[in-house]
Design a protein around this nucleic acid. Structure first.
Length: 846
RNA sequence: GGGGCGAUGGCGGAAUUGGUAGACGCGUCGGUCUUAGGAACCGAUAGAGCAAUCUGUGAAGGUUCGAGUCCUUUUCGCCCUACCA
């Protein structure tokens, strides 16, 4: 018997699939469509195990649905604009485009090595003009719809590198490269009006039944709807400033009002621009970093003004106005009213500046004399010390009542607020999609006409400049529109824009005229199953949901608002971490172990390696496994099998050498079984009912588990099938129904190990086009005998195998007289007998 | 601070609606074959006990004839989020 030569077999089928365009998809209205999409990769160089897991899951699903008779769309592309290309280009002194295209080539061939069922004719790359041309058109469409606007906004500015930093490039408030303390700089930038859809984006989460609750909760929190009230506080002590607006969710605590706090960026701060103490204070505030610890430990500081705010419910009460470091400008009105007794932040602030702490809510089991002591009380209770509000139940009733009073007196009004802010899309970078806008000499905005699209990036740009490389490209900036001279916008689009509509482009990716063809969208959209990492739970998915709405707005051609019908977020791939005695990370390939516990360096076996916890694979910790090497050694089918087998797909999986080699060995064993079967000389005379039952029952379970993404359980079933069929071949008579069932087995494993399955079926003269998912014969799902668990007082005592036809009374009588059961029942009285049909009998005795 | 998820053998994990806890894999142990094996095959494998049997799903209560599963409290771990007024 020959060993299974995965190299030959896998290569053969991959070439076949590719050359015959086996996964090419086109509209077929007679068939139900299934759009399966995995988050497309950033072409960073090579694929990693995370990709392998992501794309294997999608591929299993696509192939399964195809076998089930669906018309499947399964495309792939490249999220190819972004900073890594720009950084790599800087370091190696080459063009980002060259770098990116080289990576795409490598990664595409690696994905093909996995045997993915992708329609490569639909391949897209976001950095290609054929793609971003349409994106620029979409930008202009949204501009026309009033969903794009320009405003001044802060960026992180590195004063040494003289460049704008992305949030992730700011570490502990310092630039990642220069180490300079990052400054905030105001720039005119472009925004998408995502906040226009806040309510709709929130509401529609409810209908996304096939999304994980976790992701929906995260989006809900991100949108952050709150119910409250805006209050206009009258100000005394200033000629210019008459009133300040605040947003609050607890207007009922107004009688505990003891200060009013403003953000240092509040418009009122303009009046203090020449105040040296204020300048100093503002500087002090900006020192507080953006890291978790610094925020958690941040001490509350304030700058007292001469202004006094009047309590709208009690005009005799006037409290000081401060600037404070804990007030954010971009939420509410950048001003809060302080009620120290019932808000911990206000409490801390009041303690520091010796402000009054007046208790206005007591827990319901406390007396009216209750006083807040060491920390603020924010729980429910009863209003006290609040004149006409006294006795009301807080917070619901008291808030409602207060708002009514404020509205009646015209001092405030009910308001719903959202945390979701508009999406800033300007990036001061080279390697991104140019914004199709120009300016005249007075800085007025003009759109680049559609006929002049795409706006391409200039070639041969010096990337080692300060700031945005495009700022230095004066020649490129100069543009003529209808004979008039203009200056191009130099900001490029956030790469999240690229990925916010790519799922639409896939539907008609080769259409040169339009971003997408509404006929195609109408058929393929929405994406039935979207698969990717949880790290995109908020931004990418929310932006895509926004984009779909923006495109559909006032659009008679489509009403689709939700792009992704189903969402699945897979877990990460982890590996143990290794370090040497000098605390340097070591790659798993550089170590070995004899017992799986103690590890040593390959090049120096006397040196022990320190084994750290298993963590998600990352270059920085060097605990990565190169998929290509693994595929070359074990084969794509073994890799696919293993990546799905050890853990549920939504959880992290631990990469292990023993695991992958077990999968490899299993495929070898399966092939041995094949050989045994192909070369058999046994009988097939008698219909084998057990074989029929077992196979039908397993296929049934297989089906259900696949639909529920329970791949690890599916694979357990494959192992069971193997051992069943293997033992069957040891019999003299394999059964007249043997082949039919075995072929069904080879079919259902096709989505998981397609090369092996296709090869095996071909040997049995089954061409791949004839493969269909087998139907289940329901009559073999019925059981004729059951195991009856017999319990005494809920404790298992014996299991009886019974025939289905036996009647209840007779069965109970028989079991009572069984020797093993009888001994428990002797001299005891049966109080109750619980009988669950075909499952269980429980005798309750005293 | 807020929100979410989870805790089952030596390990990863199984267990429709509450109904035989530990499927399947890894590892370990024993055996067969072999000059040899880090190969292959067979068997065992939650713990305790010679056994009958007893104990077991982080901990403590509760509901129930019956709880890994439902409820309350609690401990630990992980993830997300972050001064959101």
């Amino acid at each position: 018997m020959d060993r299974y030569n995965f190299k030959l077999v896998e290569q053969k089928w991959q070439e076949h699939w590719l050359n015959k365009k086996k996964f090419k998809s086109k509209i077929d209205k007679n068939k139900k469509k299934f759009y399966c999409l995995e988050m497309f990769p950033y072409p960073s160089g090579k694929i990693h195990m995370g990709h392998v897991r992501n794309y294997t899951i999608g591929d299993v699903l696509s192939r399964y649905k195809t076998l089930k008779g669906f018309n499947v769309l399964h495309p792939m592309g490249w999220d190819s604009f972004g900073m890594p290309a720009e950084n790599a280009a800087k370091e190696n002194n080459l063009n980002p485009k060259t770098w990116t295209e080289k990576n795409i080539k490598v990664m595409k061939s690696q994905l093909q090595m996995l045997g993915l069922s992708i329609d490569w004719d639909r391949e897209i790359s976001t950095c290609a003009p054929e793609y971003f041309k349409h994106q620029q058109k979409l930008f202009l469409d949204l501009y026309d719809k009033g969903l794009v606007y320009r405003k001044e906004s802060y960026v992180n500015w590195d004063p040494i590198d003289k460049t704008v930093l992305a949030n992730e490039q700011v570490i502990d408030g310092k630039g990642w490269r220069s180490g300079a303390i990052v400054e905030r700089k105001k720039l005119n930038q472009w925004f998408f009006k995502i906040s226009q859809f806040s309510e709709d984006l929130l509401n529609n989460l409810k209908i996304l039944d096939h999304w994980p609750d976790k992701v929906k909760t995260m989006q809900k929190n991100w949108i952050g709807k709150s119910y409250g009230c805006e209050i206009d506080f009258q100000i005394v002590g200033s000629e210019k400033i008459k009133s300040i607006k605040c947003y609050t969710t607890r207007p009922d605590t107004l009688f505990g009002f003891s200060f009013l706090a403003l953000s240092v960026d509040h418009p009122i701060s303009k009046n203090y621009e020449n105040n040296e103490d204020f300048i100093k204070f503002k500087k002090e505030c900006s020192k507080t970093g953006t890291t978790e610890e610094s925020i958690a430990q941040a001490i509350k500081i304030g700058f007292k003004t001469k202004l006094m705010a009047v309590n709208p419910l009690d005009n005799n009460s006037k409290v000081p106005v401060y600037f404070a470091n804990f007030v954010l400008m971009d939420y509410g009105f950048g001003a809060v009213f302080g009620c120290p007794a019932h808000d911990q932040r206000d409490f801390d602030f009041a303690k520091k500046y010796n402000l009054q702490i007046k208790t206005v809510v007591k827990p319901s089991d406390e007396k009216d004399t209750y006083k807040v002591q060491n920390e603020a009380y924010s729980g429910p209770g009863i209003m006290i010390n609040s004149q006409f509000l006294n006795g009301l139940i807080a917070p619901e009733k008291s808030i409602d009542e207060t708002i009514k009073i404020l509205e009646k007196k015209n001092l405030g009004k009910r308001k719903t607020n959202y945390r979701l802010k508009d999406w800033g899309i300007s990036r001061q970078r080279y390697w991104g999609c140019p914004i199709p806008i120009a300016y005249d000499e007075k800085n007025n905005v003009v759109k680049i006409p559609e006929k002049d699209l795409p706006v391409n990036l200039p070639k041969n740009v010096n990337l080692n400049t300060n700031g945005n490389p495009l700022d230095a490209e004066k020649e490129w900036q100069a543009v003529k529109i209808n004979g008039k001279k203009y200056r191009r916008e130099t900001d490029t689009l956030d790469t999240f824009v690229d990925s916010s509509w790519y799922y639409l482009r896939f539907c008609s990716s080769q259409n040169k005229e339009k971003p997408f063809d509404y006929n195609e969208i109408d058929y393929w959209m929405p994406v039935d199953q979207y698969i990717g990492g949880i790290e995109h739970a908020i931004l990418h998915l929310l932006y895509s949901r926004f984009f779909m709405r923006a495109i559909s707005l006032d659009n008679k051609n489509t009403k689709i608002t939700e792009p992704f019908e189903g969402l699945f977020t897979q877990g990460m791939v982890c590996h143990e971490t290794y370090k040497d005695e000098n605390n340097n990370w070591i790659n798993p390939e550089e170590v070995f172990s004899d017992d799986g516990k103690n590890y040593y360096l390959n090049k120096n076996p006397s040196k022990k390696v320190i084994v750290g916890p298993s963590e998600s694979m990352s270059k920085s910790k060097k605990n990565t496994i190169d998929p290509e090497k693994i595929i070359l050694r074990y084969g794509a089918d073994a890799v696919r099998l293993f990546i799905l087998s050890d853990s549920p797909p939504e959880k992290d999986v631990q990469w292990s050498d023993t695991g992958i080699s077990a999968s490899y060995k299993f495929i070898q064993k399966l092939w041995m079984l094949n050989e045994k079967i192909f070369n058999n000389k046994k009988k097939f005379s008698k219909f084998d009912e057990d074989l029929e039952k077992f196979t039908n029952q397993i296929i049934q379970k297989f089906n259900q588990d696949l639909e529920r993404f329970r791949f690890n359980v599916v694979i357990a079933s494959i192992y069971k099938l193997y051992s069943f069929y293997n033992s069957q071949t040891n019999k003299d008579d394999w059964g007249s129904n043997f082949y039919k069932n075995y072929i069904n087995i080879l079919k259902i494993i096709n989505p998981i190990i397609p090369h092996f399955s296709s090869e095996s079926l071909e040997k049995l003269k089954y061409g791949e086009d004839t493969i269909r998912w087998p139907d289940i014969d329901k009559k073999y799902l019925q059981k004729e005998s059951y195991n009856i668990v017999t319990q005494i007082n809920g404790k298992k005592r014996k299991v009886f195998s019974i025939n289905k036809s036996i009647n209840k009374e007779k069965l109970i009588e028989e079991i009572k007289n069984d020797d093993q059961i009888k001994k428990y029942l002797d001299n005891k009285q049966i109080i109750k007998t619980i009988y669950i049909e075909n499952k269980l009998i429980n005798f309750i005795i005293n």
